[in-house]
């Protein structure tokens, strides 16, 4: 006997157009894919949609296909498990596979989707709680309340984006395809996020993610996730690094981080490392740059100090190992 979900009706469109049409005709509609994030929130009384538009019967949405430019188009409905098991992904984009393989547990991975993972709601210990709990705690800015318990003086929500795939897609320069009532558009993944923990996506009403384009020739990349347990846990910090080299020197370096800020983001100011052999000083500098740009807050029970340091260290050691690697 679980707590009852709100009395929504569930619709099953079979095409993207139909999904958008249903969404448009029902005023209070939400898209649901695997539901491994959304249903958990609904069970906790977060959200009260009248209609859920399921994306699970839209078939062309669930494929991994070759893109026109030699890259790959990953449908937003591809499950995390299928992404991790895909042969092309395994061979050409191993960092994606690592990130996918470390998401939640096997049951979530069989159900959860790439689109849901990129659109995942932001997380905070004051938010991911039951209705009773949040009410007893006088709610908070992000939902039904007036103040933020993490930073009570401000009027900004710091809830952390905690999906594992986004940083890898960011360092691979992936682009997303969005469909909506006004047609489709394609833009860099970073444009999906607002930077506000409360309303974290730039999607307009009725818009949905349909696919992700990964370019053909991506630099070697890696992903490391920090969490307390070996499974289930969301990232406390997740760092993706992509690096090309010129002999024993860095040519290009990209780093993206998840789990620490309201959005997954690309670390800035890494041009300075072009030409570096990542000696000890540069390693320290690199860790420092990352540490300065991540801003973990007390949105989890794990202390920000450690998460910050760990993010820096994971960036440093992955960069070093990519530079050393063949």
């Amino acid at each position: 006997m679980t707590e009852l979900l709100p009395a929504f009706s569930l619709r099953h469109p079979t095409s993207i157009e139909e999904a958008i049409a249903i969404h448009g005709s029902a005023p209070d509609a939400r898209y649901v894919a695997g539901g491994t994030d959304l249903i958990v929130n609904l069970r906790r009384g977060i959200g009260d949609p009248e209609t859920l538009v399921s994306l699970n019967r839209i078939e062309d949405f669930q494929n991994i296909a070759d893109g026109k430019d030699g890259g790959l188009v990953i449908g937003a409905g591809v499950t995390i498990a299928n992404l991790a098991n895909d042969v092309t992904i395994r061979t050409r984009y191993p960092a994606l596979r690592v990130a996918a393989g470390e998401i939640a547990g096997p049951g979530h991975r069989e159900t959860g989707t790439v689109g849901g993972n990129l659109c995942l709601d932001t997380r905070c210990v004051f938010y991911n709680q039951s209705q009773w709990w949040r009410e007893a705690n006088h709610f908070c800015l992000k939902h039904q309340g007036e103040i933020c318990h993490v930073a009570p003086k401000g009027d900004f929500c710091h809830a952390a984006f905690s999906g594992d795939l986004a940083p890898v897609f960011l360092v691979l320069d992936a682009e997303i395809e969005i469909a909506g009532p006004d047609g489709t558009r394609r833009e860099p993944l970073s444009a999906l996020y607002t930077g506000d923990g409360m309303d974290h996506l730039t999607l307009k009403p009725g818009e949905l993610l349909t696919g992700i384009h990964v370019p053909a020739n991506t630099p070697p990349a890696a992903y490391e996730k920090h969490r307390v347990r070996g499974a289930i846990d969301f990232p406390l910090a997740g760092v993706a690094v992509a690096l090309t080299k010129d002999g024993d020197k860095v040519k290009t370096l990209k780093i993206a981080v998840t789990g620490t800020n309201t959005s997954p983001f690309l670390v800035e100011g890494l041009e300075a490392f072009t030409g570096s052999t990542l000696g000890e000083d540069d390693q320290a500098k690199l860790a420092d740059i990352v540490q300065k740009q991540v801003s973990p807050m007390k949105t989890t029970l794990v202390q920000p100090f450690g998460r910050r340091r760990i993010a820096g260290a994971m960036a440093r050691r992955q960069a070093v190992s990519l530079l050393a690697g063949g």
Partner: peptide
């Protein structure tokens, strides 16, 4: 045939 968490799956799915 695949493992699934029935507590966060809608029966209608």
């Amino acid at each position: 045939g695949k493992s699934r968490l029935s507590c966060i799956t809608l029966a209608a799915e």
